[in-house]
Write a protein that binds this DNA or RNA. Structure first.
Ligand SMILES: [Mn+2]
Ligand SMILES: [Mn+2]
Ligand SMILES: [Mn+2]
Ligand SMILES: [Mn+2]
Lengths: 223, 223
DNA sequence: GCTAACATTTCGGTATGCCGAAATCTCGTG
DNA sequence: CACGAGATTTCGGCATACCGAAATGTTAGC
């Protein structure tokens, strides 16, 4: 039914995962150049692989046009995100990794852990539904419960909300925020915005911090 | 110093591991054809890869001659055996795998788990020194504590000893033995050998069983 | 010492992924 | 609506790891 079912290589798995996750917090489909940057590959390589994804029935591919996933591609992406995020959670919960340390190990293990072991890990963690960064862990059937939140950058002033998600793209930022006491579920108060595109001032546990543009566009607060 | 240190691919890791483990319970070095069988590859492929191992400084390679590991190759093999056996132990202890079910998962994970995670796993298990089949788990520095035992096949009659190792080569055999109550540390009594190369009769927990040649050459008893 | 059986190597090919340079396409601006 | 900057694709190449067929080496038995 689903094409060459077991055939996805770990390279294919990563492409599909990156294509999907781009649309998770944005609406427009990912460009090939962005895919190349995200995967650390040359643009020509991405062009070739996207054609292969289309041949595998995982992506729709119009030359010079958008890259979008087929139903099958989306299903594979969700399976990979489940793997990645469960493994991140497991590293934190079971082995004391910090949230800024889990990504690289998870990036490798997501391709190596068997379905049986993955589900055993999930069970041992009590079947968590979000990872250490607040990203939703898709269920085995592909169901996703998206956390509801607004980007700190776009919060009205004043505003109070709990952190529901922090982008895990930059480990250094995660460490920085951790040092400011900004973690999942912590209540953040948006106090003021400094003029002329300046920093956002927030109060966390009574202490004020300045957050620059990159930080403010990486934190989601509960509505 | 140690050549292209981080450069070993998972293929190289498997070759070195198989070459080393052949000499663990036998003295003669492995032949290329046996290597090919063990790895499930064509003989020509093995020839090519062994030359590459030599180029990497991991093996000594005389055309048409024996394949032996260099000091560096042996060190890599021991690191891989530590990985493989710790992971097998972990799957059994932490996730309830049976001893005949661990091999395939371990074969993949041994290449994917980071040093940090591996040592965390070892610690969580209390730094075990043998795996579910009785094979020794090399220490991080390469130290190996070999279990002392004699092959059941070569045991005098009568003889009594505890099982110290069972070859993990054939999962079906492991299951068979498990069904007969033959597991690590179980006391086995060698009762008689049936004539003309026949089966060996053993008593386990009061119950007699016939063991064929394959089984008798896969079990080691404490001396 | 010959020779045949068997092990090993060589050789031409294939598949997957990757790259840089050059060619081509797209689209906003003028 | 032409044009050029920037995105995308094409093309020739490379590295890794695999195969089968053919050539070659080794060695045990005569
Ligand atoms: Mn990955
Ligand atoms: Mn994450
Ligand atoms: Mn392996
Ligand atoms: Mn084992």
């Amino acid at each position: 039914m689903s094409g060459r079912q077991g055939a996805a290589t770990s390279v294919v798995e990563d492409y599909v995962k990156v294509i999907y996750s781009h649309t998770e917090w944005q609406t427009d489909p990912i460009t090939r150049s962005e895919l190349a940057v995200r995967l650390g590959l040359a643009a020509s390589t991405v062009t070739e692989m996207v054609k292969k994804l289309a041949a595998l029935g995982l992506a729709d591919h119009v030359p010079y046009g958008a890259v979008t996933l087929t139903e099958e591609g989306r299903a594979l992406a969700l399976r990979m995100l489940r793997r990645h995020r469960l493994i991140e959670t497991w590293l934190v919960e079971s082995f004391g990794y910090r949230w800024d340390e889990v990504h690289d190990d998870a990036e490798v293990l997501e391709h190596a852990v068997s379905d049986r072991l993955l589900e055993a890990i999930s069970e041992s963690l009590g079947d968590p539904v979000r990872d250490p960064h607040g990203d939703p862990i898709p269920a085995p059937d592909g169901t996703v419960v998206r956390p509801v939140g607004i980007l700190l950058e776009r919060a009205p002033i004043p505003f109070i909300g709990a952190v529901v998600r922090i982008s895990d793209r930059d480990p250094a930022l995660l460490q920085f925020l951790d040092g400011r006491g900004i973690r999942l579920d912590i209540v953040v108060e948006v106090v003021e915005r400094r003029p002329f595109g300046g920093a956002l001032v927030v109060r966390v546990a009574g202490v004020k911090s300045d957050l620059g543009a990159e930080a403010a566009s990486s934190i989601w607060l509960s509505a």
